[in-house]
Design a binder for these strands. Sequence first.
DNA 1: CCGGTTTGTCAACCATCGTTGATATCTGCG
DNA 2: CGCAGATATCAACGATGGTTGACAAACCGG
Lengths: 195, 195
Amino acid sequence: MRPENSEKRSGDATRRRILAAAIARFAHASYEEVKLRDIAADVGVDVALVHRSFGSKEQLFAAAVVEACPSALLSQDRGRLSGLFASFALESQQHDGLHIFVRSLTSPLARDLIRACCYRDFIGPLAAKLDGPDAQQRAALFVSCLIGFSILREVLRVEPLLAGQDSGPLIERLLAACLDDAAPLAADQNASQSS
Amino acid sequence: MRPENSEKRSGDATRRRILAAAIARFAHASYEEVKLRDIAADVGVDVALVHRSFGSKEQLFAAAVVEACPSALLSQDRGRLSGLFASFALESQQHDGLHIFVRSLTSPLARDLIRACCYRDFIGPLAAKLDGPDAQQRAALFVSCLIGFSILREVLRVEPLLAGQDSGPLIERLLAACLDDAAPLAADQNASQSS
DNA sequence: CCGGTTTGTCAACCATCGTTGATATCTGCG
DNA sequence: CGCAGATATCAACGATGGTTGACAAACCGG
């Protein structure tokens, strides 16, 4: 039952392989849907090893969340964030980070982990780059747009947001509107009801 | 074990009470978290009755989704929608509709039901009230903002969006920006940095 | 080569929960 | 009353899936 490439036993390496498999699984199904036995099968080891390597399913998930959190993008210039995250959301099939967030929001175990990661690693740092008294709210709205968009697109697969519909410019402008401290979210009197 | 008010046996009435209890439960926990035994306990009946009244847990959930869908709000004037849904999202503790959407997005069983309801009863009718070639996308974005906001507020309980922080104006303007076909999502200039 | 530690497997446990069939109880009709 | 059907209960099943402990195999220092 050993994987074909019979490397020498290396606990650390298999641990990493388990984590990678877990991230992939958690990105494509909810916490409850993902079974430790599936992850074990992906790696080619026994369930018990998966369990013992991380202590519990919950701890494995926590490790996956931390590992895949896309907060590194925040180090970019503020002006580029909206475009950066827009394309990130559009291509998020490739990146697992946003998916893990989105997939497991409803699991009681995962909720606290995501909440912490979301606030500490994302909203907080993002708000620090914004101006204005409501920087915190704007940063939170930014994340909410990102998550909402990603859910409708990747989880619900709502048609108008799928590839080919080119919703890129719209989501980008929406994200930018959250970041800008004054203009786009304020004072829309000029065009509100007109068509 | 009968409820105190010993009404005469009425299958239809208990069925409604079961559905009401189910809606309340599904609005406050994810599909997997909600146990038929809890719902049964709420109503004061046996699990088997809950099960047999609706055929299965899945069908009970489907009934709850249909019953609680807030699509009725869409009949209002287009100009009032953003304000209407903003306050709806802010007070959604009282209404269970949005919560059920948000709580059970990740459940494989619930997903299809929500997708159908979301598109057929919500995005479709909303898009019909909008103008412009990207009405569908804007309607979808509207829903995504609503769901994203609700998730961060009610599920993740992200602090800047909780009550007392007055995120009402921000979310309202964001929703309005989704609906307006031209101006607010395009670059704007008008600055008013108020608190 | 040998004892201890790490790395891994195997089988079983155990709780949970939706589901089901047998049975009791109530209601209404003839 | 007495029977039929709806209404509701009870106990148990069956599958699932995380968890656990006993044990085997590889690695490593001496």
